[in-house]
Amino acid sequence: MSVEFILYCLMNLGLVIVLAPLFISLIKIVKASAQGRKGPSVFQTYRNLMKLFKKEVIYSSNSSWIMRITPYVNIICMLVAALFVPLVFIPGPQSWFGNVILFLYIFALARFFMALAGLDAGSTFGGMGSSREMSLSSLTEPAMILVFAALAFVYQATNLFDIFITLSESPLMAFNPSLMLLAISLFIILIAETARIPLDNPETHLELTMVHEAMILEQSGRNLALMEMSAAVKQLLLMSVLINIFFPWGNTTSFTIPAIAGSLVLFLVKCILLALVIGLFESSLAKMRLFRLPNLLIIASVLAFLTVILEVFLP
């Protein structure tokens, strides 16, 4: 364990915590301007979170320890997952972190707790949210695994660090046309996992559309803040996976301040562009009916599968 690695950890954690809320607001702004509205300020999410942190926590009298530990488990999971995805700096091959499967399953762990918390208070909305979340995620998960299996096929690695290192050594590998298919899948997954239109609507609290929001309906005060924060971190992590795999230029492996600063700027630019795409994508679609969603997720899986077939039959 080198000093470099410790610094990587601290930096990654810091970056994630600092940047995550930013992109939540950014997407909101993009959506608002697409609809011809002005939209909130870039710092609105930060303000929301600060306000929530100050508020009192109220638990339903039905609820149990599940409700109490879920926010902590969620944020911890996301922060640990944050160590798996080098945002701007890759400290070299790692055995501790970076395993793709573990990465995905940490998300699953968080989701498991969140769904249970939805059921804990005994309110109808919470249960509905959990039920929908678990149903949809059961389709997202195979798609994700398939995407990463395809990546493992292409890059012969199951560790994100290794994949990133390979890419930073030969970024031209990202021009593989079959990877485009994977990018689309990953994008769909990103949309699904971050509870966005057409799968979910993060803006409203409507019975028909709620999935993620319904689950955290019973959370309040700083617990709610932790939940919101985890959602934001998750979004950022998935975005950066997408970016760093398909647009790998700029990631640095050398630990020098200029290199890091350069790659940070590049990373920010790429993220903002992606946020733009997400916002526009969301604005251009209507919310889908719940039972049409599986089709979308199956498309994601099929695309990933196609990549593998291309790789297998046309090596």
Binding site: A115, L119, D120, G122, M134, S138, P142, M144, I145, L146
Partner: peptide
């Protein structure tokens, strides 16, 4: 093998869903 991989992932996700249901219904709420 890849198809099996996908199904395995699906299976474990569904198992999680099932145990959310089981634990939630048996132990949680009123």
């Amino acid at each position: 093998m890849l198809v099996c991989l996908t199904v395995l992932a699906l299976t474990s996700a569904l198992a999680a869903a099932c145990f959310v249901k089981a634990f939630g219904t048996v132990f949680l709420a009123a």
